[in-house]
Amino acid sequence: MPTIRFEGQDYFCSSDETVLESLERHGVMLPSSCKSGTCQTCLTRALKGQPPSAAQKGLKDTLAAQNYFLACICKPEEDLEIGLASVSPKYSARLIKKDLMNESIVRLRIEVPEDFSYQAGQFINLIRPSDELTRSYSLASISSDSFLELHIKRVPEGRMSTWLFDTVEEGDELSFFGPSGDCFYLPDNPERTLLLVGAGTGLAPLHGILRDALEQGHKGPIHLFHASLAAPGLYLIDELREIAVQFSQFKYTPCVLHGDAPEGGKQGNIVDIPGQVLGSFNGFRVYLCGDPQIVNALRQKAFMAGTSMQDIHSDPFVFAPA
């Protein structure tokens, strides 16, 4: 009889009982609705133990890879420790390097704490120790890098970004928890076309996903469209061009809304450019990061252009007001 551990308590699960039923019998109510594995309201994560694959039907591959499952159809075969959200310990690590990418974006490189593991493209939640102010930032590094890399956009009057820009120095300790997010590379089909689209610091997770895909031997075409209002807002141009020279399957297109685009780039609305360049997105796996309005519009475009909903991964950045 498997045991389910939830929020520090152990519950026995009878044979032929689902996780949801077992907890309910013990008076613990998880959010649920259809009770048939369809609506995904009861999405739960196994922190320890492996949920049966039948309990992951219909989930995005990236969620299944992180041991998410549906409690209402999960009949556990082994002991499970479960959590609703992604519960994570707090880490502390030294800032190794801080440099300006352009006038409004700073790059932070942080030591990798021991026992911290992540998938390139996921995000962490940075904490300011003085008042516990917390903000999410995507990881631009890959797990074989000797540092964690973040790209911070200066938000006008933003408390966290102003602190990171003006006060934090190399050598300081930074605290964070995580990682979270389901926007990352999956090596299930190395021939598949990948489409990466992001605006502003939406490049951070995409840069990680791109390098991770190449390191894992992705052979199929990889298209990266990085957008900014105007040319000075683009960054990592030389690094990305360098990768394109080294890997012929990778194509980089810098995009600007206003003014002249850099060489090899496009001028126009980022929501329209990938479709104009590529036509159909049939069979693609798509990653969209950055401004929520752009991400949501692109999500619809990608879907209408032939990408299956299951294959669209997005990470809309919400910029908290000051």
Partner: peptide, 21 residues
């Protein structure tokens, strides 16, 4: 869109007589 797709999956499952509540 993800939530909407999940609802449509539930709808299609229901109208075809699949497991649903």
């Amino acid at each position: 869109m993800d939530k909407q797709a999940a609802k449509q999956r539930a709808f299609l499952t229901m109208v075809t007589g699949g497991p649903n509540s």
